[in-house]
Nucleic acid binder design. Structure first.
Lengths: 199, 199
DNA sequence: GTCTATATTGAGATAGAC
DNA sequence: GTCTATCTCAATATAGAC
């Protein structure tokens, strides 16, 4: 058992190094030699810890979906207006990006590439669950008259996710302040960019 | 000269077939054999028309930047409020997506991949020009008090482009009506999704 | 658990016949 | 201008010694 733990350490180390490379250049453009170099192993030695290169990707993304869904579910829990709920959903997205930047970057990068493979269908299932959480909150907001009725909830969901999907590309905690950005964002989404009618 | 024209026909045919594949699966995951199959040639024969595979990508994207910038410049020409200008910019984006769906899809797909190569720096230069067009319109709108002053123009530009960048992924002219979507979008951007204060 | 060495495959590209 | 045939190289993966 103690031995097993040590093995897992190595696995995690490899997965972390590979994750950084996958996020940066994509899975296809990262070779097993690149990964080996990062952890100080010959590429062949990686195969003692993972069956295939794709297996490393599963090792990285495998458990992350549940973590993500849990975050969004928690954010959508009863409490406050629909607008406050959406704000919490935005925050949840940012926190996920801050705490798991590689996973988030890989998620976006590979959606239309590697994750089209049937063996990665669980990724799309996760995204569907998250979409339902968002749509439910938006629809509830419309019923409560806190959100305009003449919008398409799935359309707004897509707008939000499209924007959030690019967060890993430009978000840098050293130059941006999370709270500021989320507020800016929420304001833009809720008030729009148009000037108030009664100036 | 007549001969030259025929050669160009073949080039265009190859570029078109390759473009569809690049847009669908990405450049990296499209082989020269795939391209050859599409046009009924052996892969080796492609090299009579293009020096390299990457050269086909240049053939596709090479002239498109100027077309794009011209579209956006036309949309930003004086006339109407800043809001009307932005609406025209949105339309320009949609039209580009309708008329050149492959080029637009490739543009987005390869931005963080192939187009990082120095030989594709012209792609980023094109995007910078487009960003300036947007930012100028937004800043003008703020000066004219048609757009809220407490927003960051580059931030709003990024929001818009992020959303537009995903258009090729889901836009289908058979199920969506362009005008409707643009209106929906513009309204969401300008009015926000929040309910009017005075219901 | 890691290394040496190598098998295997797939992709881009080329030479020369037709 | 296209085909046949092939080269070359890079990448995943494996076998067996240490």
């Amino acid at each position: 058992m103690i031995k097993r733990k040590k093995t897992d350490e190595r696995r995690k180390q490899i997965a972390a190094a590979a994750g950084a490379l996958f996020a940066e250049r994509g899975v296809r453009d990262t070779t097993v030699r690149d990964i080996g170099d990062r952890v100080g192993l010959l590429s062949g030695s990686l195969y003692h810890h993972f069956k295939t290169k794709t297996d490393i990707v599963h090792g990285i993304m495998g458990g992350y979906g549940e973590d993500l869904v849990a975050r969004y579910e928690r954010a959508a829990l009863p409490g406050g207006t629909s607008i406050e709920k959406l704000r919490r959903l935005f925050h949840a997205c940012f926190e996920a990006n801050l705490e798991h930047p590689d996973e988030e970057a890989i998620l976006i990068r590979e959606l239309d590439n590697l994750f089209r493979e049937p063996e990665f269908s669980y990724v799309h299932e996760t995204l569907s669950k998250i979409e339902e959480i968002f749509v439910n909150v938006i629809e509830e907001g419309i019923r409560r008259r806190e959100i305009r009725a003449n919008i398409d909830p799935r359309f707004v969901y897509r707008m939000m996710m499209d924007v959030m999907g690019t967060v890993p590309r430009w978000y840098d905690p050293r130059t941006h302040h999370e709270a500021e950005i989320v507020d800016h964002w929420i304001e833009t989404f809720f008030q729009g960019i148009g000037a108030p009618i009664d100036v």
